[in-house]
Design a protein around this nucleic acid. Structure first.
Lengths: 156, 156
DNA sequence: TAAAACTACGTAGTTAACTACATAAATACA
DNA sequence: TGTATTTATGTAGTTAACTACGTAGTTTTA
C-alpha cells in the first residue's frame, strides 16, 4: 500500500473500501470456480433471501438485499437466464412479479452450502483482527443511519 | 453457531463494503458542492499525491494511489480537462509523460484545505465506533497481503 | 366515481473501477 | 549490433452498482 494514501488517511477511505470489496468479490469468484460451481458472488444476497423467505416480489427482494430495484432487476434477469429462479404474475396485484427458486436453484444451494461454510471460515480468519471489520461496518452503518457524512460536515 | 444463517452476514461483506464506499463518495460530492467547489472525491488521491511529490509519471502516480494505470489515465484525462494538472514529455525517457499541478490546481488545493479538515473531523466522528473502521481496514489489508481470501479457503 | 397520487416494475444511460490487448521506447543480451 | 525483453502508456470493452425517467396497475380523495 502506498505512502501518500496512508498519510492522507481517512479522506481516501471510500477508495480503500471499494478496493477491498473488489478483491473479496474476485476471490469469491475464484473459489466458486475452483469448486466447479457456476455461481457469482453478487447473486448470493438474492438467492439466500429467496431460500429464506420463499416467494417474493421484485421490490420485496430489493428492500431485503438493500439494493435499488433496477439493480435487483438485472440480478433477477441473470438468475432467470441461469434457470435458478422463476417468476409469475401475482394474481392479487397484477403489477407484481413473484420470484421463487427452481429445482435447479434449490439443488445448487445444497451443493453450495459446504462451500459457503468454508468461505465463512476463511473470511473469519481473514477478518478476525484487533478491530473487527464486520462489527465496524455494522457500527458505521448504524451511525450513518442516524446522521450521514454530509449532515455531520454541515453541522460542524 | 456456524450454520448457513450466520454465513449470510459475512458472505455478503463485499456488497456491504461497496455500498458504504458509495455512500461516502456521494456525500463527499455533496460536501464539495455545498462549499461551491468543483471537485470530485475520486480526484483526491491524484491531486494529493501530486501536491506531495511534485512531478510524477503516469505509472508513478498509479502505483502511489494503488490503482491500475488505465484507471489512473482516465482520472488524469479528467483533471487535464479541468486544467488542474498539465503534462509534458520526459526528455530523458520519451515514453514517459510527466504530470504536475497547474496554478489553478494549486489554488484549488488551498481553497479545499479547510474543507478537507472539516471532512476529516466529520469522518472521524462517523468512524470512531467501538471497532475502528480505518484500523480494521488497515489490518485486513495487511492480512490480505500475507494471504488472500482465495488462498485461505484453499488451505483449509 | 373520476381524477390525482402512489406503487411496482422496466429501460436507458451513467459511473468508476477493472482486464485484455496494442504500441512505442528503453534496456539487456547473444 | 541487432534482436529479445521489459517498461510506459494508451485504447477498447466489461462490470456491478447507480439515477432518471416512463408506464401500467392500485388506492385515495374531492
Amino acid at each position: 500500500m502506498s505512502n501518500v494514501i496512508d498519510a492522507s488517511g481517512i479522506l481516501a477511505i471510500s477508495t480503500r473500501l471499494q478496493r477491498l470489496a473488489d478483491q473479496l468479490r474476485k476471490d469469491g469468484q475464484l473459489i466458486y470456480k475452483a469448486h466447479g460451481i457456476e455461481f457469482e458472488p453478487k447473486w448470493f444476497p438474492v438467492i439466500y433471501t429467496l431460500q429464506q423467505k420463499g416467494q417474493l416480489s421484485v421490490m420485496e427482494i430489493a428492500v431485503e438485499i438493500g439494493y435499488t430495484h433496477p439493480s435487483t432487476i438485472s440480478l433477477l434477469k441473470e438468475l432467470e437466464k441461469e434457470k435458478l429462479i422463476r417468476s409469475k404474475k401475482d394474481k392479487q396485484d397484477e403489477r407484481k412479479r413473484l420470484l421463487s427458486l427452481t429445482e435447479k436453484g434449490e439443488e445448487l444451494i445444497q451443493q453450495m452450502k459446504p462451500v459457503w461454510k468454508r468461505m465463512q471460515q476463511a473470511l473469519t480468519s481473514l477478518l478476525h483482527t484487533e478491530n473487527n471489520l464486520m462489527a465496524a461496518i455494522h457500527e458505521v452503518e448504524q451511525q450513518m443511519e442516524q446522521k450521514g457524512f454530509f449532515e455531520r460536515e454541515r453541522g460542524l
